[in-house]
Design a protein around this nucleic acid. Sequence first.
DNA 1: CATGAATGAGTGTTCATTCAT
DNA 2: GATGAATGAACACTCATTCAT
Lengths: 223, 223, 223, 223
Amino acid sequence: MSDKIPIYQHPWVGEDPLLGELTDKQWKILKAALKVFTEKGYSASTTSEIAREAGVAEGTIFRHFKTKKEILLATLIPLMQNFIGPGVTNSLHDLLLQHDNLPMEDVLLLILEDRQKHISALWPLLRIVLLEANYHPELRDVLLNNVVTRVQESLLTFLQKRQSKGELRDDLDAWTLMRSIVGAFAAYLVSKTLFPEREQGHENRQELKAIVNLFLSGAKKKS
Amino acid sequence: MSDKIPIYQHPWVGEDPLLGELTDKQWKILKAALKVFTEKGYSASTTSEIAREAGVAEGTIFRHFKTKKEILLATLIPLMQNFIGPGVTNSLHDLLLQHDNLPMEDVLLLILEDRQKHISALWPLLRIVLLEANYHPELRDVLLNNVVTRVQESLLTFLQKRQSKGELRDDLDAWTLMRSIVGAFAAYLVSKTLFPEREQGHENRQELKAIVNLFLSGAKKKS
Amino acid sequence: MSDKIPIYQHPWVGEDPLLGELTDKQWKILKAALKVFTEKGYSASTTSEIAREAGVAEGTIFRHFKTKKEILLATLIPLMQNFIGPGVTNSLHDLLLQHDNLPMEDVLLLILEDRQKHISALWPLLRIVLLEANYHPELRDVLLNNVVTRVQESLLTFLQKRQSKGELRDDLDAWTLMRSIVGAFAAYLVSKTLFPEREQGHENRQELKAIVNLFLSGAKKKS
Amino acid sequence: MSDKIPIYQHPWVGEDPLLGELTDKQWKILKAALKVFTEKGYSASTTSEIAREAGVAEGTIFRHFKTKKEILLATLIPLMQNFIGPGVTNSLHDLLLQHDNLPMEDVLLLILEDRQKHISALWPLLRIVLLEANYHPELRDVLLNNVVTRVQESLLTFLQKRQSKGELRDDLDAWTLMRSIVGAFAAYLVSKTLFPEREQGHENRQELKAIVNLFLSGAKKKS
DNA sequence: CATGAATGAGTGTTCATTCAT
DNA sequence: GATGAATGAACACTCATTCAT
């Protein structure tokens, strides 16, 4: 048991019942699997390539995971549950609580900058999750319940509070407000990825400010 | 060649050099391939299932397409070039031209409703294109150049014209405006798909109106 | 279809729904499978060895049979249904009918000699059937219903008729009589196989006569 | 070596050079192996299941037995040598000696009843031995030399003595007599196993009596 | 041009056996 | 001596691709 790696030293898995603690070998396999899946997708990846990448024998993989699909789930689900999910939500929640009294503009800008950092760091991971969620309901469920729903709730609560404070229009559903700002922000990230040259000229923070400004110009309560 | 089908009778392929005109058999194969790819994704589809679905022998497929990958490209690229692309762009273009003098609110609503209809109809196709574009650069290129770019250009032109007319703020980049409205609209579609129960209560047109209203409240030039 | 082999040219399969007619390749595979199974038993046989023995690619095997187990069943079941079963039963039945009026001694001797010839010819086949029937209920069922039961019925009918004619004791169940003569005969065959040197000295026919004599001495009705 | 188990406390192995005395662990492994082999046959059994069943680590098994095949031999050979063989023979021998002066009918009935009891108790073991002897010559040899031959000798001696006493026909080889009674008896056991419903109606002892009666009616010397 | 049987490299998975601890 | 993680050759089976008919 001496080769166990302490939970906090890797992003995967806390007291997650699916995996428990990870041995050195398991960690190497999961890291290799994530790399290979990320590059080629699940179907086009082979267990033998994962083994080669992990530096273990192919048989070793199946000592730790019953099937190839279990490797996929054991790779992505804990990441969503323990890393993406809480990572995303907690910091979001903290942000919203912490700066409860800042003006809307500033809070939203902080949030978007914070989100952007997180998403950039996690992008390869998020990408494979989003792709494979199309074919594996188990992934879809965890994605929805552990990531999407949590983000929504945090944001909704925040927006509703600001509505009741009179800072945001309440003739529109908070849900609609949320979709708009999240959509605009997401579209910016996508655009930055697809057309790096296009967005490169602009200062990132300026662009985020513009997004917030446009949103709030429409969303603020007119006195 | 009596079994040739006139171009205009099927959505695929015009003067596309990749395929030229399609024989009856080719058409059946492509239709079958699209169905199978759509259901299981490229990697998990087998040529034998495509053959069965098309009602031809497996060998026949390879008489028309050199490899499985060529089937994928021959299926999706013409669709993007001749169907999604123009279909999308033209109608968009027409709409924008046709109602050039309508108030912003009405034009945007018309556009979104029109887009929504198109996207719904094409969704299975768009889905597989978006998914596979992640792994096949050939697809990604065509997707960007033939679909995304065209939509952007139409919308940009429209927004810029309205900016120059003084109807929209010109302190913000038209690109930024576009991202916001497109993002908000896309977020609505995604939300409708992922949480049908959530969005079900609302009247679709009301929701689109809210999106437009929110956008324009922020985007309109203050006099 | 020109490579189909007429049914009657091989022992396997008549209008057997399991296989229908056999192509040249299928025939080679089944022959190879029978050989390999016979030599090493089912579990220890590999599909690759069967392929090598049949002179076909391993993939070819699975074009004709879905699983390794299906090869086993497709090999043995038709043999039992079309070869062992009828072969055994018909000739037995014919014999019994044909020589209905011969003295018991002669009929029994004819039967045993006939059976012995059949069983010798089929021994490798019977052996693998008997062995694998222990692990595959499908085989056991066909063995019992198509072989064992048929033989029993023929013999029982014969013995009962002779009982009612007053030639055999009727204070004993015909079933008991049958078991005794069949058992004695089987023990002789086993003994000949296990201890060839022991039984070699004796003339085969003399030995069969002794078996019949011993049986009839006990089984004949005392006047 | 304090964990050695005295020989006489387990049925396996006496001065058998193959195993010598057994440690507690070895005993557990052999018991587990016998169970697993008995249930699935040799080929379909896995060493890991044997280990699990024995409650030891998989590596431990290979510390005691070089190969899987050695486990099979170490399991079955000593059982034949020390349990089946002697067990069978001795009690048979004793019976024959003890009741040397009883009438044939009674002795044979006693023998058959005694054998039946033994065989029933040992059936799972005998079954696997008979099956695997087909593929492992080492097993076949021991089976023939230690079990079959011994039984034969005891019975032959008995029958020959009765022949010389004038109680049994001596115009037939004792070997022939033996085969007949053994065959009839074996056929009864097989029949009882395959068609339990058929033989259920009859009283077991009555059936045995009938077998003996039929045999002796034919085998007894006519005065 | 169409067929579909044949191919064989490759797949995910198993398992007897080894060996560092 | 006992362990069980690691191994890798072998397994049953798949599938894109070829080619004789």
